[in-house]
């Protein structure tokens, strides 16, 4: 509905080039999908006449300084603290994204524990509460398919930041944060269970939600939803992932 090409209800002065249109948010971010056609019809033809349209969908790209608000303070402190430990911030922090009032540090996976330890212990940072891991599977982000997303909350300074770490499908290893945030114990098991990300150093990385003998990692994009067709009188409706859909 809110396509850039749509005319009904779009105020050209206000909406043209507006940042909330799909595919318009900067070109720097990771490409996660290629959309073909106007409506993104997956199965079944696109009768709109725009079937040949090809657009790449990108996530918000890296931000440049100043980030604004307390974001600069956190970034400065983190970079300073990393330098004190003899690390080069550019090697550790892949990119910093500021989007929708939230700050995301993309961390190289081998430095994750050091960064988390710094964020927790440095008095000027003091992110003492980790709200767990959320796995995301981007099959379109080649070489960085599996992302682990951590949200860290500082009760002391009343701040929230996000750490993002990625690993390729072929080598799904990410260091475990249980030694820094013991609360991640179950969260990492859950992410392992659903995405197959192996958290190295976790004390007991086993399945937590699915039965122990379950095959596959059900919330990855290449794992089917697993529904069955539903029968009604004289009709059958396929499972939700088998239906015609738009995306």
């Amino acid at each position: 509905m809110s396509d850039a090409n749509g005319t009904n209800g779009v105020n050209p002065e206000k909406d043209l080039g507006a940042s909330n249109l799909p595919g318009q948010r900067g070109e720097g971010g990771e490409e996660i999908r290629v959309q073909r056609g106007m409506f993104g019809a997956n199965n079944g033809g696109d009768t709109s006449g725009y079937g040949g349209l090809v657009r790449s969908v990108r996530l918000p790209g890296p931000a440049t300084r100043p980030y604004g608000g307390w974001f600069d303070e956190v970034a400065d402190e983190l970079e300073g603290a990393l330098e004190e430990q003899g690390l080069v911030p550019e090697n550790v922090i892949d990119r910093t994204v500021v989007d929708r009032g939230e700050m995301t540090f993309h961390i190289e996976r081998e430095y994750l524990v050091a960064v988390a330890q710094t964020l927790r212990d440095d008095p000027a940072l003091r992110f003492e509460l980790c709200t767990g891991v959320s796995g995301v599977h981007y099959p379109g982000d080649k070489g960085r398919e599996l992302h682990a997303v951590y949200h860290l909350r500082s009760i002391t300074h009343n701040r929230l930041i996000r750490l993002e770490v990625s690993a390729p499908d072929a080598d799904p290893h990410i260091p475990s944060l249980v030694s820094v945030y013991p609360t991640n114990d179950w969260h990492e098991r859950e992410t392992y269970d659903f995405f197959g990300i192996v958290f190295d150093g976790h004390p007991a990385l086993t399945r937590i939600m699915m039965p122990d003998d379950w095959q596959g990692f059900p919330q990855r994009k290449d794992y089917p939803l697993g529904g069955i067709p539903v029968e009604y009188k004289g009709a059958q409706i396929p499972a939700p992932d088998q239906r015609r859909s738009y995306s």
Partner: peptide, 10 residues
């Protein structure tokens, strides 16, 4: 449904 611009939020 409506389209939501790419990105993430918490």
């Amino acid at each position: 449904g409506f389209r939501v611009p790419p990105g993430q939020a918490y």
